[in-house]
Design a protein around this nucleic acid. Structure first.
Lengths: 350, 350
DNA sequence: TGGAGGGCGGAGAGCGCTCTCCCTTTGTGC
DNA sequence: GCACAAAGGGAGAGCGCTCTCCGCCCTCCA
């Protein structure tokens, strides 16, 4: 059986296209990669040959010579040695957030034909693996969703000076690119809205303050309330969990029963707060107005639905991908950060 | 500048290892790939050389000659032209489910060094792309999470006779591999549990009956109740949504106020039912016992927490990966299905 | 009209690996 | 001691692509 007997099996190569177009392999390559000046007429001839043959470049061959794989990794890093069905990781995936990130990243990657390899980095060993993967050219770079303030991965990536972009500012300052939302501005949106509603006694349920998001949302909110002339804002730590939000709300009601406006640093905590308010016979938003943060699925699942501060997740994710591709392309290791504006989504709770 | 001046940049190749080990490239390759009989002594020498040089095989080069990419795609197929933040896709990611699937798949893929490329197939065009991607050797095969009963992707994959494994039986019979849970058995677990609790008036809130999961859970439940001597089980369609569950429960209470046991075909619907029961002053599980299905995050978020039927998602996902790898390895296109046993998770609601 | 220069296309050398072929060595039976 | 077999290891041909040279030809100017 000669190779010609199974033409359906063999995929067309550059050579085939070249033959059809009546030019050399090199020329076809130039056209495909849009390199140098190729006669526009030939250009068309070549593209016609490409579609006639149904040619698609072979990634492996291209990779071999360019030294790029044409794929980047999306690393979900928790570095806490958790099982896949652990509540924490569960909670992470428990949100349109992940899907929105993926959608945003892919929207940029798809047109350039770059693959997105999904990786879970559950412990330090896995983090080491991630770094060596990119050093060894298994992937060209990584976008990182780091879920934990003490996650060692960002530092390792920064030290290795490897193409990487984080979602969210790293917990400690380090030379690494990231995208983030203007948290202070988001907190201000919430503060101004509560003030505009006429809330006189505003409090906040904060997230873990060892996480940048937790600290910034708290400080930003306080600062904005201060600008509104409110010097003191009671705050209770809800640790970014549903039950933490419940507990914080309980304490808040006990110690500040006059409260008529609450800013929760995450929707999940806001949802917990809502449940407690309901148990206490408080009506939302009439007795107490509640504003969340994130615009997660919890915001829609809550009754009443949550007024909340939304991050432009898709845009941010897309920008991550763009930053990473640029970084890989230029082979320079400048770090960049891009900050996005949040948006107040008005629903029933405030 | 000669190439030797930047040794840190150049990654070690087979040739380097061969030189260190004092053998030929071919022998190193044989050892690495565990092929044919190589002298055990040489075996060790080679492996030592590998770790001495820090050699890692170049995927691209290997790919080029083997014709395999060493990566498979995880396709999240909805084929309904939805935006990334669409409630439906949101709902899909709104669950530990996705994370559990990824974890299960990766647990099998990681040891074999196979990459998992994430792909969203949002419309028919994207489905075509998926099929051609695997035909053109962009990926070796696909595991598919198909979210919609009218999704064209499974059919396209079956027709193309491409290595693919579905999560869940396809809506229409077709020659394609899949893993699934024994739905009838799961429904039976729920039925038997409600019966054992002493429920006298059992009803069910079904999912969309055009989906296999919806139809099977309903029929399985009815069948099991019939075996318990209950000839008639009222059923209301909740369409697998929270609000659908609410509406179904409302109707159920109106038309069958004597109901003291409910099997909801998904946790989300059960959660909706719980809210309605609460509004009607019914206590769960004392007045009405509720059993869900899936063991999703909703089961834990509900008050009371849901007794529910759990699928061994990680195991099923791992099996998907295993089936796919086998299929790719053997280049034969036999289709297989593997069915897993569900488990009743006892919590507070029943 | 001759020479220089620039644009355009071809030839061919690899990228790092696998795998087929073939040679060498060692073992075995008569 | 010889023929043969079997097994281990080496040589080398590509896999399909990019990219560096290099040469052709066409244009432009003197």
């Amino acid at each position: 059986m000669t190779s010609d007997q199974t033409p359906a099996q063999r995929l067309p190569t550059l050579e085939d296209v070249a033959q059809v177009a009546g030019v050399s392999r090199a020329t076809v390559s130039r056209v495909i990669n849009n390199i140098r000046n190729v006669d526009p007429q030939l250009h068309k001839v070549v593209w016609d040959a490409v579609s006639a043959t149904g040619y698609v470049p072979n990634r492996a061959a291209r990779s071999l010579v360019t030294g790029r794989t044409g794929s980047i990794a999306l690393v979900v890093s928790e570095a806490e040695n958790r099982a896949a069905d652990d509540p924490f990781l569960g909670r992470f995936f428990s949100d349109p957030f992940f899907g929105r990130v993926v959608g945003g990243v892919l929207s940029v990657l798809r047109p350039s034909g770059v693959h997105l390899a999904l990786t879970l980095a559950g412990d330090e060993e896995a983090c080491v693996k991630v770094v060596s993967d990119v050093r060894q050219g298994q992937v060209d770079g990584v976008v990182v969703l780091s879920l934990h303030p003490h996650d060692p991965l960002p530092r390792m990536l920064a030290d290795a000076a490897v193409p990487a972009v984080l979602y969210g500012r790293p917990a400690a300052p380090m030379p690494i690119s990231y995208v983030d939302v203007a948290t202070y501005q988001g907190a201000k949106l919430a503060a101004d809205h509560l003030a505009a509603r006429g809330c006189q006694h505003v409090a906040t349920i904060s997230g873990s303050v060892d996480m940048p998001a937790g600290a910034d949302r708290l400080h930003g909110f306080r600062e904005a309330m201060a600008k509104q002339g409110v010097a003191y804002v009671p705050s209770y730590d809800g640790g970014f969990t549903h039950s933490g939000g419940e507990r914080a709300m309980e304490r808040l009601l006990a110690e500040h029963p006059e409260t008529d406006g609450v800013f929760a640093a995450s929707d999940v905590m806001a949802q917990g707060a809502l449940a407690v308010l309901r148990d206490h016979g408080k009506s939302v938003p009439d007795d107490v107005a509640v504003v969340g943060f994130d615009d997660s699925s919890a915001a829609l699942a809550s009754r009443p639905q949550l007024t909340t501060v939304r991050q432009p997740v898709e845009d941010m994710a897309a920008e991550m991908a763009r930053l990473l591709l640029t970084r890989i392309d230029q082979r320079a290791n400048r770090t960049t950060s891009v900050i996005f504006d949040p948006e107040l989504i008005l629903r029933a709770s405030a």
